[in-house]
Nucleic acid binder design. Structure first.
Lengths: 190, 190
DNA sequence: GCACCTACCTAACGTTTGTTAGGTTCGCGG
DNA sequence: CCGCGAACCTAACAAACGTTAGGTAGGTGC
């Protein structure tokens, strides 16, 4: 049922997604949803939360697996790969979060923001490790650049096509790292 | 009235935006909208179309102004600046298009896609000029990277803050160009 | 066998939505 | 002064929405 809700979210956004539709998708009636959730809001708060949960879990897994890694760029690439994996390989929750979060009403968003902040902080810490030369004020902007590159892939990337998720992760990581590197050079030689 | 519709779109998405709200915003009643448009669909097709119009106009302006420019990177930066200008300086149409296009129903989207394709083709041609060494199969992907970087700025960039639109355009352009350059090096030395 | 809980259904409620038919106001051209 | 069209309003329509009250079937524990 949460799965069905997530898939509808991806396809239609929040307001266009009906409880009656979700119920029909899993073969029950709309009223029965209220046995499991108090309201439509409640249901979708759970869906969005799981979307972040999947991302955080993937992040933590990489963090422990890459513990003794000395090449920082490899560590970053592994995390990019994990984020893309959350988007394309672990159900629709993360995809629903990325595409439909901003279509949800304010009350839902504000309930989710603390979880989002947690995930963003993990990335900030990671980027501070990988790019120690980067001005700390520029760090959130760099993160937003990277998030933009990763999250927009959901609008065009086809996991069954020529380019693999590994390849895409490498593409994004290299492009990002070299871009940031070039920006630092430009600033210091001015 | 189109302005009001665009602003509501940015704030709430398609389905959550009511004809009664739009009417109230401009001081008329909902039924009166049908004197100017045949339906809600019709109204928002016009809004989304103008969003692209603003972008295309900005693109064409730069194209003619930068006609005799020999430094390709400057040409690209000017176009990036123009795209960001369309997003932040020319009303809410382009912003509405970028944020709310995917919240609109299929029938609206398919009516807009040809216009989108036109804009995307202009960028493909531009990138082919600026990056002649880039594999033509990789070109649409590079464009999507760049679009991702530019369009997600709408979720975090504050035009009244420390960073100017010119500065942001430079940031994005350098980051993009050096990233693509690095990718080509990596591929040719493998 | 009785009580109880979980999971679901039926049927309706009040509200909101896009939409429409018919009427009013106002300004311009002849 | 008359006619006409543009711009708007009123009032209502059917449909769809989230939500709720009350009821039913089946399983579990004692």
């Amino acid at each position: 049922m949460l799965d069905a809700a997530a898939e509808r979210l991806v396809a239609q956004g929040y307001t266009a997604t009906t409880l009656r539709e979700i119920a029909a998708d899993i073969g029950i009636k709309a009223g029965s949803i209220y046995h499991h959730f108090e309201s439509k809001e409640d249901l979708f708060i759970e869906v969005f939360s799981r979307g972040i949960e999947v991302m955080v879990d993937a992040f933590v897994d990489v963090d422990t697996a890459m513990n003794g890694c000395d090449r920082e760029s490899d560590r970053l690439e592994a995390h990019v790969r994990a984020h893309l994996g959350a988007l394309f390989e672990h159900g629709s929750f993360t995809a629903a979060h990325v595409t439909a979060f901003f279509t949800a009403p304010e009350e839902i968003r504000s309930a989710i923001v603390p979880l989002r902040d947690d995930y963003e902080h993990r990335w900030n810490a990671l980027l501070a490790d990988v790019l120690p030369e980067l001005d700390s004020a520029r760090l959130p902007i760099a993160r937003l650049f990277l998030f933009g590159a990763m999250n927009t892939t959901i609008e065009w990337f086809d996991p069954t096509g020529d380019l693999s998720l590994d390849g895409l992760a490498n593409l994004i990581t290299v492009q990002f790292l070299e871009g940031v590197h070039a920006l630092n050079l430009q600033r210091s030689t001015r």
